[in-house]
Simulated assay, not measured.
Amino acid sequence: MSLSLTRRALLAGAATLAAPGIARAQRGRAASVTAAIYPGAWEEAFRETVAPALKRAQNVELEMQPLFAVDQIAKFAASRGVPPFDCFVLDPGPRITGIERGMYERFDATRLANRTALPGLLADEWGVGCAAQVVGIAYNPKKVPKPSGYADLFKDPWVSRLGITGFGTTFGTVSLIEIAKVFGGSETNIEPALAELKKVLPRIAAVGAPAAMPGLFQQGQCDVMYTNTQTVTTLRDRGVDIEFAVPETGATAFFTTLHIAKGSENIDAAYKYIDTVVSKGVQEALQKPPYNFVPVNKEVALGAGLPMRSLDEMARFVTHDWAKINPLRGAWIERFNREMAK
């Protein structure tokens, strides 16, 4: 017994002597956070801009998992309570799915140092907006006149230069809903849009996957399409002749949002990551080429190519109820792909 006590005493003494060194090492070691991120431009932007800012300001290392929104939802659902990442990045449809399935920690916006720089509508009990999206019509001003709205796309001279895509993205879904509304449909009834598209399908210039549309426009295979301002600005930066038109029924607005995954073991680092993303310096950097994000921080001046001078103006833009859209969207995607392929 005495030997055992002696060993305990020795171990305790060694731990006491080592504690200051361990504490110093822990203070110097960076925390880490793993964030799901959209592949492509988003991943590149966050790697080049957010990651170094997070390390510099908060001493937090950013690891990223490139995943589209539906893949984030699916991967979390398959994780059986062990989240594969700490933060989601989602558009409105998948965001609602995550809320309904209990995939997020409750969000406390007061933990963000930059909270007062965000419009009130951007933060709620589930997360916070990190980028604004504005959707309307893009056109080549050297090839076609400026369209006044979605109905013009089905007439000459626009219809023969029209490029369309389906419901696979948020911008595609909201555009087709707005087209349906012009022809008598609604947020949940897209039959009029599909009927009108079928009538003109032999005449339109291109049908493409969402990711292919900027390339088709740049190559001149189409000269008018529904899209977001980020795509328009990016193509203009490349020297493409392109302008953004706000439809007479109004531009559509939505926000891409960040959420902390339920069960995350890096809550503090996750808040620091989110706070860094919405900070003035990072938002300014993300707005610049080649990324062209629409900032959500009110202290950042909006770019000249946007159809509003302040984020407050987005309150009058068209929005949609994704709790109603989500149950229908899968069938819409399948039907568009089946009926509109050329």
Rank of each mutant, 00 (worst) to 15 (best):
F171I: 10
P141E: 12
F85V: 01
Q218R: 14
K199L: 09
N228A: 03
G40R: 03
F46H: 05
L258D: 00
L67E: 05
L194I: 13
K280Q: 09
V50D: 02
I325F: 06
D223N: 15
A123P: 12
Q230G: 03
M308Y: 15
L11C: 09
F255T: 04
A285I: 10
V207F: 15
W158N: 03
M340G: 01
A251D: 00
F88D: 02
R27C: 07
E178L: 15
P289G: 13
V60A: 00
Q26P: 06
F317H: 02
R238Y: 11
A9E: 07
K155F: 08
T6L: 15
S4K: 15
A74E: 11
Q133C: 08
E339C: 07
M225I: 15
D91W: 00
V282G: 01
I274Q: 00
F183V: 13
R335I: 09
S175K: 11
F46M: 05
L286T: 02
I333T: 12
A53G: 11
L122D: 08
A53Y: 04
Y150T: 08
F171K: 10
S264F: 10
D237C: 09
A193I: 09
A270E: 02
F293C: 04
E44N: 08
F336D: 01
M213H: 03
A270F: 07
G215L: 14
E100C: 12
L5K: 14
A285D: 07
A285C: 11
E178N: 15
V207M: 13
A12M: 13
M314S: 14
P192E: 13
E339G: 10
G102V: 06
A41G: 02
L306P: 00
P52W: 06
T16Y: 06
K198E: 14
K288W: 10
G184C: 13
I190Q: 07
L194Y: 14
A14M: 12
L3N: 13
T276V: 05
P157K: 12
G184V: 11
E243Q: 14
L17D: 12
G127N: 05
A151S: 12
L216S: 08
T116I: 10
A77W: 03
D156H: 12
A206C: 14
R24L: 13
P295E: 09
A57P: 00
V144R: 00
T227M: 05
P141W: 13
G136N: 00
P141Y: 06
I99Q: 09
T231H: 07
K75N: 05
N59P: 05
D237I: 08
A36W: 06
G305C: 10
F68S: 10
L62K: 02
R95Y: 14
Q230H: 02
E43S: 11
L176F: 09
R7C: 10
R236M: 02
A180S: 15
G21Y: 04
Y271S: 03
T249W: 07
A211T: 13
R115D: 03
R101T: 08
